[in-house]
Each structure stands twice: as C-alpha cells, then as structure tokens.
Design a protein around this nucleic acid. Structure first.
Length: 820
RNA sequence: GCCGAAGUGGCGGAAUUGGCAGACGCGCGCGACUCAAAAUCGCGUGUGGCAACACCACGUGCCGGUUCGAGUCCGGCCUUCGGCACCA
C-alpha cells in the first residue's frame, strides 16, 4: 500500500514525540562526550522569528544533529535576549509595558523555534529579563567592581537625543545611534564604565591563535586599533615646568616637526595662549566644541585652527616651533596633542599649506624629494636634515630616537589603542538595575550579593525622562534605601546596565540555568566549556563578541573560569537576501517563515535555506528554488515508499553502488562538519537520483543511508521513514552516522583526461596505480590522440595519476628536444 | 585612504595539493501522461561556427606573467560587499 507524503502530519507527529522523549536534552552531569553547540540567542521581536533567524539556527542545528549522529552528547541551548533599548522602544511605540510585550513575544518565538525543528535543550533556556537571570548579571557586575574593573567616572560620552540615553562607543556607527540612526551628541556625564581597555593586548594577541571567521578577527583588530610609538614632550617656552606631551608613531620624523597642535579641549590651551591671541583662540575653541563629532571628524572638511602665540622647544632640533589649536586633533586619543610633521603626514601637510607653515622634509623617498610636493610622503626612506640621524633608514632612526628619548628622560615608548572603556550605564527602564547604593557618608557602596537581585520595579511610567537620569529616579520606593555599610539613608543607583552585559555571559549560564544559589556550577563549567562551536552574525563582531571575550577573561582572572577564551571555534553565517536585496518592511520583500512552514513544511524550508548558497556567505531566497527542494523531499519519500510497498531487500548492494554509498557518506559528512551544507544537499540529491534510477534493486542499506544522511537537514520526514523502515527507536536518539570503509573510496580503474599541449583530446580508463608507460601506450592507440599529435611523437609526457596525461607535441624553447 | 572578503551560464551556485570548468537545483525548450490544464515523469540546455550530428574555436571581471597545464599561483588594474578612518 502506497502512502502519500504529508509534511504537516509527519512534522506535527514528530514534534510531539520529540518533546515527549526529551530529544535535545542531555544529562549535563553524566554525558560522556560533551559537545557544546551554540548559536547566538535571539532578541524576541514582536514580528516573530525572522527568516534570517531560521537560516542561522538551521545551520547550527544541522551541525549539532550531525555531531549527535557521530555519538557526541550535543548540548544546544536556546534563550531570549529580551532586555534592552530595542524592546523598550518598541514597547513605547505600542504603548504597552515591555514586560507584557516580551512575554507574548517569547511564547511566539518558542512556538516557532519548535516549528523549525531545532534540537534545543529547552530545560536550560534562559530569559535575560527574568530576575532569576539578571540577579546573576548583577552578580557579574559586582565581581567586576570588586576586581576594580567597574568604575564610575565623569567623561565625555555619546548621548542619543532620541533614545535619551548614553551609548557605548561600539553602539555609535558613523556618529549615529546604532538603534535609531539619530546623530549622537557629546555630553559630559558621570557614568559606569567597564575597563575593557585593560584587556586590549590580550584581546588582540589571542586572535592570532583563534579559529574564528577571518572577517571577525579583522574587525576586532581594527576596533582595538593598537599602535606603538613614543610619547614625547616639548617644553613650552616661557612656562618653566610646562611641557606639551604627545604621542607619535613616527619618532624618526621628529626633526621635521615644525609646529605643535593641541586639541581644542586640551587643558593647556588657556594656560599658554598669549594675550594677543586669546580672543581668537577662545572663539575658535568655543566654536569647535559646539560642533558635532560627526562634522568635526569629517575627513573631507578643510583644516581650521588658530595660533596660540605660544612656542614649544623641539627637543631634537633645538628650535622653537609655534603651538596651534586645531580641531583635527582629537582630545580623546593619545594625549590630545601632536607634533606636526607636515612633510610626512597628510593631515599636517594640509594644515601647513592652509596656514603657510614651513614643510621641512626629513625623509627622502626612494625616488628623491619631489621638487614641488603636492602631498605628504608617509612611507619609509632615508633620513635627511636630521643631524646625527642622517643616512639611517627610517625604521632604524625610529628605534634610535626612541632610545635617545628614553635615555634623556624626554619621553618613553608607549602603546595606544582606539578601543575605549565600555560604557554600560543606560538612562532607561528596561534593563537590570546597576546594583550600587550612593550613601552620603560612605560614598558608592555595592549591594551585598545576598541582597541580589535588585528588582526592577514594575512601574506604569517607564518612559525615559531625558534629564540624564533613568525613569527609576522618579520611583521613590526604589530610590530610597539604606546604606548596606552604615545603615543610614541612601539612594540607589538608578541607571540600568547595557543589554550587551546580559548577553556577555549567557553562554556560561546555560549549563547552570537551574542553579538558584550561584551563577555558575564549577563542575558544569569544567565539563561543558569552552563552547565547541559558536555561530552568529557578523553584526556582532565588535559588540557582543568583544564584550564576551572580555567578561570571560575577567572572570578567568578572578578564578571563576578555567579558560580565557570562551569560544573555541566561531563561524559567522551569511546574510539572506530576497529578490537581490536585503529584506526590509519598506521594500516589501520580507519573507514570513510561518507561511513557508505551512506551505512546504519545515523540512523543506530548512533544506532549501541550506541549499540556497554557502552558509557562511548567505544567499538569495528564490520563491521558485524552494519548489525544487520540495520536489526532492517528495522523491525521497516516494522512493522509500515504493520500495517498502513491495518489500525492502536486505541484500548487499552491487559493488558500484556500494562504492557510491560510501563516497556519499564521506562527502556529506565532511560537508556538514565544515558547514558546507549547500554541497551536502546537492550530494544527497545526486545520491537520491542514483537510487531512484536503481529503484528496482535498491537495498535496505542504501535507503537507510540516505535517510540518516538527510536527517540533520530534514529531521521529521527522515524520522518517519526510519520508523516505516521498521525501527522501533527514534532516528534522532538511536541512529548513528554510517561508517565509511576507506577501501570503497578508491577505484580499481579511473577515467583520466588525455591532453595534447594542455587541451583535452580524449579520455581513457586506466588502472589505479598503473604506470605512466601503460597510460601512454593506451593513449597512443587512440585515433583522436594521434590526429592531435599530427604524426609526431610526443616531445614530453606529463602524467598525473588519477587526473590527466598530457602529451606535449609542440617544441618549446625550454624543451631540450628543440635543440636537436 | 587603510584592512578584509568576493567577481564563474539566463539565475542560485559546484569544482582536494594547479590537472576533464559549469556538479546540484531553478528557469527555459521538447516530449510522455491528460479531452485539456495543473502536478508528475523523461530528454535537452555555456557561447559561436551549422537547422542538427560529427568536429572546431572561444569561454571563470580586465591586462600581463609563471607553467606541459591556471577559475585556482604571481604582478598590475576594475567592480561589488563588509570593517576602520583627521586615531597622530
């Protein structure tokens, strides 16, 4: 009796069975072969699971299911990153309390994540907004505080006028708020920072050895922006004891420093400005500080600046040089001052040209100093006009100047970074309150761990105030407290923490999710971490992925973790596009996964998403393309169904087919392991086509191989076919990846190309392991080869076993035969 | 401007260490089934020289090079995407 493939019925049946059997759950304490397979958890939006989420999770899940078939105890947890500005902004827009909104979203997400057949360990799910979770987020903050890695300090910070809160540097993209696109402004506020800069070197150095997608490593290197050089001071003339310190990566050009530039916010500006210059300088500084960062740091803007009238002594040349104020020098980098070397720095060159300042050349480029320079020369060369340094190469001079400066006590070698400390205060409602108390007598006092969590109060008005304070500041029941140290009246910190802090440690919590008395179980940590495979999007290259590494290192240094780097392997998945463009509501090309599940079933959706293109590059979703995969599922079903209807032979397959079976197992396995899911699908299609062509003699071993190999992509249909093939246990629990017999991977004979002068002229079948002579003799018997040779004997023969035989007829200059 | 990734049929994309370019799928064409259509199945499908076969030439962004042989390696460009950017 034939049965038709009904994806809805099959998938509904197995979803239920899997849930009952707890497929996906592992014994976290006993599992003999632990494998932690992690995919970045979602932010549960109101729109529901995005097709991009389905794409990302299917890739990770396919990998996890493959690992499980290999016999690993795969732990694949899932959770919800539900705190943060994004959720809160949406709640404000809908005018619904975020707590209620999020609860709905989370339950919708859970449903969809079940629908997509993820093999998740739901018992360990986390929700960052639950007090049972954020209690420990606060605990993490306190650990950092006790370690001296959390500090409240006054600093110029990025303020988003639309989100009404400060942001971390990482959350400002080209001068605009990452969330809403509004241009940020600089405010001077007292805020909580986490000292990630203390880990800059380690964060950078470890990258070398890490097995991560190269794009992510590069992005992190760029972001950390390490540069090594010299910090040097020039004394200010007429101000004994005062010197301008600056950082330079080109100490070899110090003789060419013909002026000094201070940033407008530099503290020395007003102290050294001469009376005559003061009005102009003050006007300039005021105007510069009022300018938006976005505008001020625009590369294309013409250089502006004012002479302070003061002079500095170039300690290398002994000459006095003018000190200018200009806004192309940033107050936030290095010391906020530079020595300007206009001949060898394009920015200084432009500035010197604009204001008629001298441009002395001290490095001679390989082609000589140009007669009329139109731009600065920043490359290496020979040092000139620099006294004792003359004639040295610029790298040698660089070292000598640094040695000299250190010896003379004029400066020291220094390393600077682009990376800034991580600002985690948010003047918002929807996050974990920062667990600190401000006491008039004791100052800033941490909340004792025993009093955690500091509960986020349920308030009606969660709207941000815009005063620089969180909405919590107006909740007196929350604010008013007693000092944990002296017992006197005190106020709570009212800012909440950045939601990237929530996600900076969630992967540590999963294995210990049920722990109520501590954040982490050391045994579980030791057993499951670091994560074996982590998959996520490129967009988190310098946010989540950098913060996470920092938190992990810090917790390691405090003795909470036995490792520094949390993710052994990280792979970034690509981005899905549709109709040639990124999906967006305004474009109207958004794909709704629920509709696809309803029309084709999750098995086909999963398999198509993986077939669409290379997982790590993404792909273009085609409405027609998915039909092809849907047809493929039907073909697989019909093949098994047809053979079942007349009885499945247990005989061994013929040798040629057995060879193909083993090759398919090997190829699909290596593809899954490398996340090359697209080629795994095409190999499976080829195999299914071959079995269909041989349907009359197809055997049990072949059908079961096809079913198991396909199961990581299409779990339900394969589970059903497995059952129909007579197995009592579930494929996803009991089945094992079939073993490959390497003997089958080599043929006795192989067809190779016969080339004449590099052009394929014929093909011959030769014995594997045969000699060049044998192959040549065979090839020369062929008419086509003879005619291509044009009657000549080959002048040279190149034989690549198993690949090609190339006969060189043409006499080339290098060919000794040509010299006859 | 600097750094990184990538350019292959009408389309998505395959192709160990340099060794038969275009697997697999979509689309398209022809055929079978059908009163007809849809669905399904079979065959064909890089371009040109022919309407077709045989055969030949050309063909992996562009120019040049190395090699018996280059999608793959080297040099110089062009384009697209991503990261960084008055960071001294």
């Amino acid at each position: 009796m034939r049965v038709r493939y009904n994806p809805m019925a099959v998938e509904a049946k197995w979803r239920e069975r899997w849930e009952q059997a707890g497929v996906g759950e592992v014994d976290l304490d006993q599992a003999p072969r632990p494998f932690y397979n992690l995919v970045m958890f979602p932010y549960p939006s109101a729109e529901g699971l995005h097709i991009g989420n389905v794409f990302a999770y299917t890739g990770g899940d396919t990998y996890g299911r493959y690992m499980a078939l290999l016999g690993h105890d795969v732990f694949e947890p899932m959770g919800f990153d539900a705190f943060g500005i994004h959720s809160e902004n949406f709640a404000l827009k809908m005018n619904v309390h975020p707590a209620r909104l999020i609860a709905n979203n989370v339950s919708h997400f859970r449903e969809q994540l079940h629908r997509m057949e993820g093999r998740f360990a739901w018992s360990q799910a986390v929700d960052t907004t639950s007090p049972a979770y954020y209690r420990w987020t606060q605990w993490v903050f306190l650990q950092l505080y006790h370690r001296g890695l959390a500090e409240k300090k006054r600093a110029p910070v990025n303020w988003c006028p639309s989100c009404l809160t400060v942001l971390a540097n990482e959350q400002v993209v080209q001068g605009a708020c990452e969330r809403c696109g509004t241009l940020v402004v600089t405010r001077h506020l007292e805020q909580w920072f986490l000292k990630i800069t203390q880990y800059a070197d380690r964060l950078l150095d470890h990258l070398e050895e890490m097995d991560w997608s190269p794009t992510i490593k590069t992005a992190q290197r760029n972001w950390i922006g390490r540069s090594a050089g010299l910090e040097l001071s020039f004394p200010v003339v007429g101000h004994p004891g005062t010197a301008v310190a600056f950082f330079t990566t080109r100490p070899d050009t110090v003789h060419g420093a013909s002026f000094v530039v201070l940033a407008p916010e530099h503290p020395l500006v007003s102290a050294i400005t001469t009376d005559g210059a003061r009005p102009a300088v003050e006007a300039y500084v005021t105007a510069a500080l009022a300018r938006r960062d976005q505008e001020r740091t625009d590369v294309n803007r013409a250089k502006t600046g004012v002479d302070t009238g003061a002079r500095a002594l170039n300690v290398a040349t002994g000459r006095e040089v003018p000190i200018w104020v200009a806004d192309y020098v940033l107050g936030s980098y290095g010391t906020g001052a530079i020595m300007a070397v206009p001949a060898h720095d394009q920015r200084d060159f432009e500035f010197a040209n604009a204001f008629g300042l001298p441009i002395p050349w001290v490095i001679e480029p390989p082609g000589g100093v140009p007669a009329t320079p139109t731009e600065a020369y920043g490359g290496p060369g020979t040092v000139i006009h620099s006294g004792l340094l003359n004639g040295l190469s610029s790298p040698d001079a660089r070292e000598q100047v640094m040695d000299w400066a250190e010896r003379e006590g004029l400066g020291q070698r220094r390393v600077t970074y682009r990376l800034r400390d991580w600002l985690i205060s948010r003047q918002r409602y929807w996050g974990p309150p920062i667990p600190m108390v401000l006491c008039p007598t004791c100052g800033t006092v941490p909340v004792p761990e025993s009093e955690l969590p500091v509960m986020l109060p349920d308030v009606e008005n969660f709207r941000p105030l815009g005063t620089g304070e969180s909405p919590l500041a107006s909740v007196s029941a929350f604010v008013e407290t007693t000092c944990p140290q002296c017992g006197g009246p005190a106020r709570r910190e009212t800012d909440v923490s950045d939601n990237f802090l929530d996600s900076a440690w969630y992967y540590l919590r999963y294995p210990s999710a049920e722990e109520t008395e501590r954040a982490l179980s050391p045994d579980r940590i030791a057993k499951w971490l670091p994560v074996n495979m982590y998959i996520g999007g490129h967009e988190h290259a310098v946010l989540h992925l950098l913060y996470t590494r920092f938190i992990s290192m810090a917790l390691h240094d405090m003795g909470h973790l036995p490792f520094e780097e949390p993710f052994r392997v990280f792979r970034a998945h690509g981005t899905m596009i549709h109709e040639g463009a990124k999906m967006s509501k305004s474009r109207g090309n958004v794909i709704n996964p629920d509709e696809l599940f309803d029309r084709y079933g999750a098995d086909s959706v999963r398999t198509y998403l993986m077939f669409m293109g290379p997982y790590q590059e993404g792909g273009d979703f085609s409405d027609q393309g998915i039909q092809g995969v849907y047809r493929f599922m039907h073909r697989v079903w019909d093949l098994v169904d047809e053979v079942l209807s007349r009885g499945v032979p247990d005989a061994a397959p013929p040798a040629a087919r057995e060879r193909e079976r083993h090759r398919t197992i090997a190829k699909v396995g290596s593809d899954y392991a490398a996340l090359h899911h697209n080629t795994a699908v095409s190999t499976l299609m080829t195999y299914a086509n071959a079995l269909t062509a041989a349907r009359d003699t197809v055997t049990r071993a072949e059908l079961e191989t096809l079913v198991i190999l396909l199961s990581p992509l299409a779990p339900a249909i394969t589970e059903e076919l497995w059952e129909r093939l007579g197995h009592a246990g579930m494929l996803s629990q009991d089945a094992r990846w079939p073993t490959v017999d390497p003997a089958y991977l080599v043929d006795a004979e192989v067809e190779i190309a016969v080339q004449v002068d590099g052009r394929v002229r014929d093909r011959i079948v030769v014995a594997v392991g045969g000699t060049q002579e044998q192959a040549l003799a065979q090839a020369l018997e062929r008419e086509r080869v003879q005619s291509a040779l044009g009657g000549h004997a080959p002048a040279r023969v190149v034989y690549v076993p198993g690949r090609a035989l190339n006969l060189v007829a043409a006499r080339t200059e290098r060919d000794p035969a040509a010299n006859e």
